[in-house]
């Protein structure tokens, strides 16, 4: 007797960790850090509970925009090696669930931030989520090689929101913290795109490396790093800066400029032969660059009560 065996592939039920992955926890950790610095360097004292709640809801808003991004980009995430294991393309979570989670957390984070701090901070968070999910993910990412340049604004808002949550207004210092991340984003992502070129090409994402080639991208990295340096160093001469920040910023920008210069003057064939060792080094360094700049701002704020921070 022949047995008729049929197998049904049941969708794998998602665990809690899969939903956490939708919120891009690594990006969230950077958001928490920069927003916390924005809030702590502000020249007003904030109640610890209000501060903690504000940071949590800013991070939750960033996570919500990450989930919305994963819902919209599921098709290209599946093609790219770097993103293929994300919960939606990996089949762990349905795209609709990512959309639902993103929308729900967006609403919760905005309303709660308004109640915890103020409506200006909540308004900026709303704009950030909209900018990342709609302007960047739905529009710019697939239509222009300048996607990273303009889209970088979404990642630049958290320290400004932290500052506004504390002070209730936007000032030069908040704008400079925004500008620091905004100008840092292009060289950071283009360094990544140099050694991940095929990923973007396969997915049809018009990164600069795909549309204008590696030579043009190398030049762009150099130009943006040159433009970044005065913004980063300039923050040293405001209320949030000081000698510690200035020294750190000079060293970090010197190193970043040196790395960008090397990237610009490298031959594509040599880079491919040594497996993009310089590009990978500069990419990793750029993460430390941002972390240490905000760390130095925090150090200035921490030293100020002892008469050591600031000018």
């Amino acid at each position: 007797m022949m047995s008729d065996i049929r197998t049904y592939e049941q969708p794998r039920e998602a665990g809690f960790g899969d939903y956490v992955q939708l919120l891009k926890p690594r990006v969230m950790s950077l958001v928490v850090f920069t927003a916390l610095v924005g809030l702590l360097v502000a020249p007003v004292s904030v109640h610890p509970v209000v501060a903690m709640a504000s940071i949590l809801f800013i991070a939750l808003g960033a996570g919500a925009s990450g989930a919305l991004n994963m819902w919209w980009d599921a098709d290209i995430d599946a093609v790219m090696r770097r993103t293929a294991k994300r919960p939606v393309p990996a089949g762990k979570v349905e795209a609709g669930e990512a959309l639902g989670l993103g929308m729900a957390l967006s609403g919760i984070s905005i309303v709660m931030l308004a109640l915890a701090s103020n409506w200006l901070a909540a308004g900026l968070l709303t704009f950030t989520i909209f900018f990342y999910a709609v302007i960047y993910s739905m529009w710019l990412k697939r239509s222009t090689p300048q996607n990273i340049v303009i889209g970088g604004a979404a990642g630049a808002f958290p320290p400004m929101i932290g500052w506004v949550a504390a002070t209730g207004s936007i000032s030069l210092e908040a704008v400079l913290m925004f500008a620091l991340i905004f100008m840092w984003t292009p060289p950071h992502f283009w360094a990544l795109a140099l050694f991940m070129k095929e990923d973007y090409s396969n997915a049809g994402v018009p990164m600069l490396t795909v549309t204008h080639g590696l030579r043009a991208t190398r030049k762009h990295i150099w130009v943006y790093t040159v433009l970044l340096a005065p913004v980063a160093v300039g923050a040293a001469f405001t209320r949030i800066g000081g000698p510690t920040y200035l020294a750190a910023s000079l060293v970090l920008n010197g190193w970043f400029l040196w790395g960008a210069w090397r990237i610009w003057h490298r031959d594509d064939i040599v880079a491919e032969t040594d497996n993009y060792v310089v590009e990978k080094l500069v990419f990793r360094f750029s993460l430390y660059y941002l972390f240490l700049h905000f760390g130095a701002l925090l150090a200035e704020a921490a030293l100020r009560p002892y008469g050591l921070g600031g000018w």
Binding site: E13, A14, F16, G17, V20, V49, V50, M52, A53, L56
Partner: peptide, 29 residues
């Protein structure tokens, strides 16, 4: 599957507990 469901329920439960505690603390402040 049951372990995974339990971990999910536990995660949701803990998240809600933290949320409630935070709302309470915010209200008091």
């Amino acid at each position: 599957l049951h372990n995974r469901r339990f971990s999910r329920n536990l995660g949701v439960g803990l998240s809600l507990s933290v949320f409630i505690a935070l709302i309470f603390a915010l209200t008091v402040v």
